Amino acid sequence: MTTHLIGSRDEWLAARIELLGKEKELTRLGDDLARQRQLLPWVRIDKEFHFDTEEGPAALADLFRGRSQLLVYHFMFGPDYKAGCPSCSAIADGLNGIAVHLANHDVTLMAVSRAPLAKLQAYKQRMGWTFPWASSTDGAFNFDFNVSFTEQQQRDGTVEYNFQREPVFEWRSGQEGDGTSARANFAAMTGTDVPTYSRERPGMSAFIIEDGVVYHTYSTYSRGVDGIWSMYPWLDRAPKGRNEPSGPWWRRHDEYGRG
């Protein structure tokens, strides 16, 4: 027997219309936030960044692929990972379908990770993805855009992520991917321990190129990427919502049903 509120069709309609007003308010707020993002000052990038791509070595300007706008998803796949982060993989499932539409709207969508290109390509083939993916293995790109950190930063407590200083990382037993926490589970799923897994972080950054000059326009991190995680808008409209009281439940799309 359900414990949820039960009502008539008329009662549902009245409540739904009231909710519609709040949804419209949220939509208008979202439109205003989008305009404010576009009004942020641009930061000229004079530093040279180097990437490995399927087409060969590339500079940041080359990642635009002839378009004027570039959206980078900072995919958690560190050099020591044996597989990509499960959460980033779930997000990337959505990126795969929209890249072609963005490309035809003067926007290149590109994933960037620190793992070597060969490792990224093998994982990309496994997942069946087609969006472009560049490796920034030996460069400063991930560090400069605050999605990769060193072990020394972890130990010193100097990690700056999501525009704020993080507490000193707790170096303790139980952080070897033994399944005692969601982070340990995800670390194990990438073939690493928790400290190694935690040195990579998710995020997205936006760039524009004008007259051959590249500018950084926007970045978001942590739950800021919820908006590009395509399963969440659907779950937020499902009867039970995200329904994850015990923590993350998702896996890579080829791992469901394995037990």
Rank of each mutant, 00 (worst) to 15 (best):
R199H: 08
P195Q: 01
E25H: 04
R172P: 06
R67M: 01
S8Q: 00
R199C: 09
G157N: 00
E176K: 04
F141K: 02
I98D: 05
V225R: 09
L70Y: 04
D52T: 02
Q175E: 15
L29I: 11
S135E: 02
L33G: 09
P233F: 05
F75W: 07
W12V: 14
Y197C: 02
A59S: 12
W12C: 11
E48I: 01
Y215L: 05
N142W: 01
E170D: 15
A140C: 06
Y123S: 04
A115V: 14
A115T: 12
A34R: 15
T27N: 15
G259K: 00
S148Y: 02
T130D: 07
N162H: 11
L235R: 13
G56V: 00
P248R: 05
M110C: 10
L117K: 00
Y221H: 14
N243E: 10
G179S: 03
Q36E: 15
T192R: 09
K47P: 03
A187Y: 01
P86H: 09
G128K: 06
L102W: 15
R114E: 09
L109S: 10
L95S: 06
A122H: 00
R9Y: 09
F49Q: 00
E18F: 08
P239K: 15
D52Q: 05
L63N: 06
G203Q: 06
R44E: 14
A184N: 09
H216N: 05
A111K: 05
P57E: 01
S87L: 14
E18H: 06
D236E: 13
S68A: 09
L102Y: 14
E54I: 03
R258H: 15
I17T: 11
E54L: 06
S230Y: 14
A115D: 08
D106E: 04
P245S: 02
L26R: 10
T3D: 13
G259P: 06
R183M: 14
D106Q: 06
S173Q: 06
M1R: 12
L26T: 10
D32N: 06
H74L: 05
E25K: 07
K47L: 03
E160N: 14
N146L: 07
Q153S: 06
P132A: 01
E160M: 13
E255V: 02
L235D: 11
Q164G: 00
N96V: 02
R28G: 05
H253N: 09
T137H: 12
V213C: 13
A184Q: 08
E170Q: 15
S246P: 10
A103R: 13
P202Y: 06
Y221S: 10
F51A: 05
V112T: 04
L19I: 15
D62C: 01
R172V: 12
F64R: 10
R67W: 08
K240A: 10
D32Q: 11
V100G: 00
I209M: 07
L13I: 11
A83Q: 12
E244L: 15
M110S: 09
F131Q: 03
W12K: 14
Y218N: 13
D80E: 15
W129C: 04
C85A: 12
